[in-house]
């Protein structure tokens, strides 16, 4: 303990502290309603990661991908939600999320901005790959194959997620996979269920909410329906996503590129 550590180790322990100090000084006048003052500082995300693992990982997981059993959301998908801004994420960390187990945190504002920077850095985001498909062809394909269930701007269905900003929040590879293997990436709110009701009819839908006694779904006709579990004959969850698997025979790679190009620039 008394002996001097090797120079390289010394540097390594000193450097993060220096970063922290610089970041703290540069952000000393942070206002809660401004944009992230640390946004341009790549060191903020690293500092935020340290705080995240110490303070947030118990619920959100060390990889920030969330823990389903306690409804702690996958924060790598945080930025895919409509209307999410850095300010709003800042507020949610600071004030907590009403109606959930997410508490308020009295961290200094600077540390919250570091967390925001970290969450930005782990986001599942669009890649920089160019979209090379034919947009007009993509529009036709989208209308014929997707719009019944997916919303784009002011039109489309509601059974699947809103795709208005999807290319800026998911990579092309992830989107291709979601079309080819939709059951691989089921979000909460879109998990499929098959119910046999008391009148012996089958209802296929996606789970919106559930407690010990009841379940709330959107059925495959896009109708919100609630059921009391004791009145159901049976229910099955081990079923595929309601979204069809589009194989390469049904939708070629080129056609898929067309759709993604259209989604990227549909306005």
């Amino acid at each position: 303990m008394m002996s001097s550590p090797p120079a390289s180790d010394k540097q390594m322990t000193f450097f993060p502290l220096l970063i922290l100090c610089i970041v703290l000084i540069s952000a000393s006048s942070v206002n809660a309603q401004q944009t992230n003052p640390l946004a341009s500082d790549p060191r903020a995300a690293r500092a935020g990661g340290v705080i995240f693992r110490a303070q947030c990982a118990t619920c959100h997981g060390a990889d920030a991908k969330g823990i389903n059993s306690i409804d702690a959301p996958d924060l790598t998908l945080l930025w895919t939600q409509a209307g999410v801004t850095e300010n709003r994420v800042f507020d949610q960390i600071k004030q907590g999320v009403p109606g959930s187990i997410m508490p308020a945190h009295d961290f200094p504002d600077t540390e919250i901005w570091m967390l925001v920077s970290y969450l930005r850095s782990v986001a599942v985001a669009g890649s920089t790959l160019a979209f090379t498909g034919n947009r007009e062809n993509g529009r036709t394909l989208f209308v014929n194959n997707c719009s019944e269930c997916h919303r784009l701007g002011n039109s489309g269905g509601s059974l699947g997620p809103n795709l208005s900003n999807i290319t800026s929040t998911r990579s092309q590879a992830a989107l291709r996979n979601a079309v080819r293997e939709p059951s691989d990436s089921l979000r909460n709110g879109y998990k499929p269920i098959s119910l046999r009701t008391s009148d012996n009819s089958n209802v296929l839908g996606i789970i919106k909410s559930e407690d010990a006694f009841s379940i709330q779904i959107m059925d495959n006709k896009q109708r919100l329906r609630g059921f009391v579990k004791s009145e159901l004959i049976s229910s099955r969850r081990d079923i595929a996503s309601l979204m069809p698997e589009f194989s390469a025979q049904q939708l070629s790679d080129a056609q898929l590129d067309d759709i993604l190009s259209f989604l990227n620039q549909w306005r």
């Binding site: 009841s214 609630g226 009391v228």
Partner: peptide, 9 residues
């Protein structure tokens, strides 16, 4: 859900 008070969204 009007029967149970559980929310859809």
């Amino acid at each position: 859900d009007a029967r149970t008070g559980r929310r859809f969204w």
